[in-house]
């Protein structure tokens, strides 16, 4: 009799414990996570485990679960080649230029657009400015052929004013400027939306008070608008710095492709890996380069977040 009571007692505890377990209580809600978790594990976490390849003499048949380890031999190759300096510097230099020029141009556009009073004009010009953002870099690269080729539009214009034509596709030095300009053309209008939203959020009565006190529009921009959107600008810049180690192969590869003459200034870590993978891959070595990039990128994310905490506490991501 006593035993039986005990038995039901423990069973009751078990059922209670089950009921308390959140996975059981909210099973329906958790089950909605299943599909995304599967995709996540297969396409994001399994490759993370594949990082071990960087320390392996990778054997394509054995896979990364069974290949032999060879220590840091894969890293030695990349770091001894001297190419690592080149691609790292290119990555950082290009991204730093993109972040700086992009930020200046987007803020500039946002300030100007928010000062315009004609609603129709603002809407039409904003539509046009954000249009290039939705076109792929491949298409832009194809457009650029019409502009940059020997008999293209830009060289025709240069000849018209009596200058020397530029041979874009064999001159690596001009591509930094070309990419900066294309980048502004493609995304400055789109990125200015975030800053416009910030400007729209500013209390209108501040401007009214300033105008009554005799402040001009230009004065209002420098003394009200810019100081009040500073936090947004800092936040966006910090987020961009967090990804400064990611080379934009989506932009660079369509333009440069396998054109070796342009690699000197345009080859970034990502295009280096992509080219290596699509030609004669040594998987261990390309994985080592990838790991180097991931670790450095992670460090930059942590550093930029620490910066955010310090200078704009409400904008820190974690």
């Amino acid at each position: 009799m006593e035993d039986k009571n005990n038995a039901t007692g423990t069973r009751g505890v078990c059922v209670n414990r089950l009921k308390k377990n959140d996975f059981v209580k909210n099973a329906g809600r958790y089950s909605l996570l299943l599909p995304s978790l599967v995709f996540m594990i297969v396409f994001a976490y399994l490759p993370m485990f594949g990082i071990v390849m960087a320390f392996q003499d990778y054997d394509p048949i054995a896979g990364f679960f069974a290949s032999d380890f060879n220590g840091f031999a894969n890293f030695r190759f990349f770091f001894a080649s001297g190419e690592w300096m080149q691609v790292t510097l290119n990555t950082l230099y290009l991204n730093a230029l993109f972040i700086l020029t992009g930020m200046l141009m987007s803020v500039f556009l946002a300030v100007i657009m928010s000062e315009l009073q004609s609603k129709a004009f603002t809407r039409v010009s904003q539509t046009l400015m954000t249009l290039p953002n939705f076109v792929s870099w491949a298409t832009v690269a194809m457009f650029s052929v019409a502009f940059l080729k020997a008999d293209g539009i830009i060289n025709s214009a240069i000849k018209l004013v009596g200058g020397t034509p530029i041979d874009f596709y064999s001159n690596p030095d001009v591509w930094v400027e070309v990419f900066v300009i294309l980048r502004i053309w493609k995304s400055a209008g789109w990125n200015s939306i975030v800053y416009m939203a910030a400007i729209l959020g500013i209390d209108k009565s501040i401007y009214e008070a300033a105008t009554i006190d005799g402040a001009s529009r230009v004065r209002c921009i420098f003394s009200i608008t810019l100081p009040l959107i500073k936090n947004t600008v800092v936040l966006m810049t910090i987020m961009n710095i967090g990804s400064i180690f990611k080379g934009d192969f989506g932009m660079i590869y369509p333009f440069v492709g396998n054109n070796t003459e342009l690699l000197y200034t345009t080859d970034v870590i990502d295009t280096y890996v992509l080219r290596a993978l699509s030609t004669f891959p040594n998987y261990g070595e390309t994985a080592a380069v990838g790991l180097y990039q991931s670790v450095m990128g992670f460090v930059f994310v942590i550093v930029s977040n620490a910066l955010a905490k310090r200078y704009a506490p409400e904008s820190a991501v974690f």
């Binding site: 809600r29 978790l37 994001a44 993370m48 390849m53 890996v273 991931s294």
Partner: peptide
């Protein structure tokens, strides 16, 4: 509602910060 939502948030968020790289993705 979910007690362990922050754990899942973290699992998802981590993939935005760190990745296995193109080579490992290619092999997988």
């Amino acid at each position: 509602k979910l007690k362990y939502r922050n754990f899942f948030n973290f699992i998802y968020y981590l993939t935005m910060l760190f990745s296995g790289g193109l080579t490992a993705y290619y092999i997988v």
